[in-house]
Structure formats: C-alpha cells, structure tokens
Amino acid sequence: MTEFLQQLLNGLSLGAIYALIALGYTMVYGVLRFINFAHSDVFMLGAFAGYYLAPIVARVFPSGSVAGAVVVLLSAMAICAVIGVTIEYLAYRPLRRRPRLTVLITAIGVSLLIEFTSQHRLVFGPSPRTFPQLLDARTLDIGGVAIGTTQIVVFVLTAVLLAGLTFVVQSTKVGTAMRAVSFNEQAAALMGVNINRIISFTFALGSALAGAGGVLFAMSYTKIEPLMGVQTGLKAFVAAVLGGIGNLPGAALGGIVLGVVETFAGGVQGLSNYRDGIAFAVLILILLFRPAGLLGRAQVEKV
C-alpha cells in the first residue's frame, strides 16, 4: 500500500509537469489549429533560464529558500513568454494565411533550429549539466511515504499556476477573447478583437507555463541538456491529445494521467524498460474508445 501511494505521488509530480507543458500545446492549437513543435524547446529553454538565473537570485535571496525558487521560476516564465511570442512573431505570423502543413513544417524547423543551436559549444553545449539545488533537500515521511520538499513545491506551484490560468481564461476580458478567437476568429475580429494580439498573448501564456515546467522538471530530476525537451515535450503533446486537444482541463488531466501511468509501468518488475511503450499503449487504448480524448467533444473540423 505505501508502495502504491509512493508511486502515485511520484506519478502525480511527473504528471503535473506534463500538464504544464501540455497546456501550451492545447492553447496554441485552440487559436491557430496547429501543433507548435517548438514548444518542447521552450520547456528546455525554461530549464536553462533557471540554471543561469539561480546563482544570480541566490545573491539576493537566502539559498534554499522557497522565495528564491519562486523568483527563479517567475523569471524563467517571463523569459519563456518573450521567447514564445518572438517565435510566433518571426516564424508563424508571416505564414498565417498559408496552409497548415506549411506552418507545421516550419514549427519542426524552429524546433530543430533551437535544439541544434543550443547544443553548440558557444551556447549550452551538448553535455548534460546539473541543475543547482534551489531548495534545501528535506524529506518528510508520512506513514512510510517519502515526500520531498521539491515535490511539495512542484504540487503547490502547479496548483497555483493552474488556478491562475483558469482565472485568466474564464474570468478576464482577454481570456474571454481567447475563447472567442478559438471558436471563431472572424466573428471575434468583428467584435473589435485584434487577433494578432490575442495570439501573442496565447503564446506568452503557454510558453510561460512551459518555462515553469522546465524549472520544476529541472528541480525534480536535476539533469538538464539541450535535447531534454524532445521526449518530455512529446509526452506532453501526447497528454494534450489524450485530454482532447484544444481543451484546457483536458490537457491538465491528460498530463496527470500520463505521468501516473508511466510511473506505475516503470515500477513493475521487468517492465521498467518499457515504461514509455506502456504509457503510449494506454494512450492508444484510450483514444480507441474516446477518439476525441478524455474531455474533448467529437466535433466536425470547421471549414
């Protein structure tokens, strides 16, 4: 039983990170109907932003403090927001009226560009680095289940970010405009909505969450490298599809489901090498029965 709870806990904290990244995929899909493959690299850049920011922040905030970690997180989020908006502005906006496939291929190109540039020795270099310890490593023992301070911070911050996102999307003017644009761009334009601005805002929001995911991932697993986004990003994308692409609560749920399934698969004797395979098998199974995803509604593609 404690073994089960332990795995569940580990799965949830991995899932929380998938959820943060998955939201960006799903938000961009919501307004532009394409998959921003460069999103996974924004996640990686978030981790590196945290890596370079940590020593600077440590000069002001007591090392190991939660406040310091939050400042690193928020700064990395801001940097990633700017990166996301820039990518959209330079790479995708000029192609707005082109076929989706063109944009999709461009996104793959942007992703490769970031990955290979980052691997250059004048940038981050190809070898993994150890992420600085932002929090004092302490482990609480709750009835045999070990929970680390980092895990707690991951949970709390993810919950705060999800609540904040829900508030922005559901209760603010710009959030309502986002939902309007995602339903019908032309109608939103007729209301006086500057579509480009809403798209920029969407990229800022999604990229900031990916940046947060990057920092939290680095805090949890300590190794970062330029290709770290490839696999994690792919899984987050899968999580977004699993939840129902375009659906925000779906992306969060999909991320958590995938994190938990993957962790349990990895915990079974003799199966741990197949953890990704099993996670994907579960995904295929779910999509067989619910093609639109867990929370997605089957809908006809708009013309």
Binding site: T176, R179, A180, F183, Q186
Partner: peptide
C-alpha cells in the same frame, strides 16, 4: 451570415 455567435460562451 450564419450568425457566428460564440457557441462555446
């Protein structure tokens, strides 16, 4: 034409 209301709002 076709009203284009935001059906999701």
């Amino acid at each position: 034409e076709g009203r284009m209301i935001f059906a999701n709002l």
